[in-house]
Design a protein around this nucleic acid. Structure first.
Lengths: 208, 208
DNA sequence: CTTGTATGGATACAGTCGTATCCTAACGCG
DNA sequence: CGCGTTAGGATACGACTGTATCCATACAAG
């Protein structure tokens, strides 16, 4: 066997280059040649590691989902002790909102992909997986919290989750277009969480 | 003077064709030739009535804004008598959400434009005008309602409006991607309006 | 009727796009 | 040491893009 290159690593470099372009100049600025230039390789290399532009695009969307997933886990881990139901929601919704520069860029790319998915079924299949999983996860958590008496019994968990996710997504849009600051968005989220759960506490109260 | 053509009418036809393409196949499918084909005219005609592709795109965005504006006014007019503050909010937020097939198409186009505006300052300037005006309008209305005692005095009108608009936009996204039905979205909006105002009444109660 | 201008048909241009092909250099294995 | 496969450089193809140009026609004004 001749010289071996780590294909996964190469694909990751190219996917990162793609996402840098998509998040700064939009998905319509993404071309095979632009990706090559951004990654500092030749066009042939891009073609060699991805059969299609379509495959490249889907790889970008998958990577975005993986990043979001990583952020949620790392935020959950950063909170010492067990999370309250409210803590779980604050973590997930806080990850959806753009906070630092990198997550702002990722949100830009995510928005671009979301729009593209509206007229591209292949992208829609890949892109809706994470949001649906997120909604189901939060709904299950909220239903459990309701059983435990943490929220009022007359609330419908699925409706509440749908509203909160829509709120977070809408706020993300307004933060990206600089209509609102990150802090203002967080404040609105917290306000709504206060109405759903009691006043704020991220940690589960000590038993007894 | 030779044969005169109504330029405004011609431009309107072309803009409509553009929006039909953008709402069904996305903004990236919009080309001068596609617009010509969709409108049933030659490429030259498109060039003749619009100096630029950029001008054409901005015309499309302006038209979308005008349609939204028309819908709000017509919904307000459809409600007999004077609108309560809640009625105003229900009308505006109800217009943002896609209801019939046409408003779904317009929402698709609007979403495409919104995303494009994130990386195109010229579009952003045109596209943010209406949302900002809407936010200011609703904020003023809500502040007045607060003065009149229609909502609790501890609410911040600007924050409430920002949250409601973000919610409506986020719900629009989820309706477009068929994660949620129009009815479910309306229900969530009504639920949040109930929490802000009292229980639902669109008409102002008779004086005395 | 002639004339000048508004309208639009036909065609061309230089770029850019995704994809395909040809060929060479590098290198692990027998 | 070659042999064969992998990694990529170089180049080309046809399609499509926005824009420009040339020219014909139609029609209102003189």
């Amino acid at each position: 066997m001749p010289r071996q290159v780590d294909h996964d690593e190469r694909r990751r470099q190219l996917t990162d280059a793609l996402l840098r372009i998509a998040s700064t100049r939009g998905l319509q600025a993404v071309s095979m040649r632009e990706i090559a230039a951004e990654a500092g390789v030749s066009l042939r290399v891009v073609q060699y590691y991805f059969t299609n532009k379509q495959a490249l695009l889907e790889s970008g969307l998958t990577e975005l989902g993986a990043r979001m997933d990583r952020r949620v886990k790392q935020r959950a881990a950063a909170t010492a002790g067990e999370l309250t139901p409210r803590g779980v929601f604050a973590a997930v919704l806080g990850v959806i909102l753009p906070s630092d520069e990198q997550s702002r860029l990722d949100s830009m790319a995510w928005t671009a992909y979301y729009t593209a998915a509206l007229t591209d079924p292949a992208l829609a299949a890949v892109g809706l997986t994470l949001p649906n999983a997120l909604e189901n996860f939060l709904t299950a958590r909220l239903a459990a919290a309701q059983q435990a008496g943490d929220i009022a019994p007359d609330r419908d968990p699925r409706t509440e989750v749908a509203g909160l996710l829509a709120l977070a997504n809408g706020l993300t849009s307004s933060v990206l277009s600089r209509q609102r600051s990150h802090e203002a968005a967080i404040e609105i989220i917290d306000y709504h969480l206060d109405r759903l759960f009691g006043p704020a506490s991220t940690l589960r109260p000590p038993p007894g």
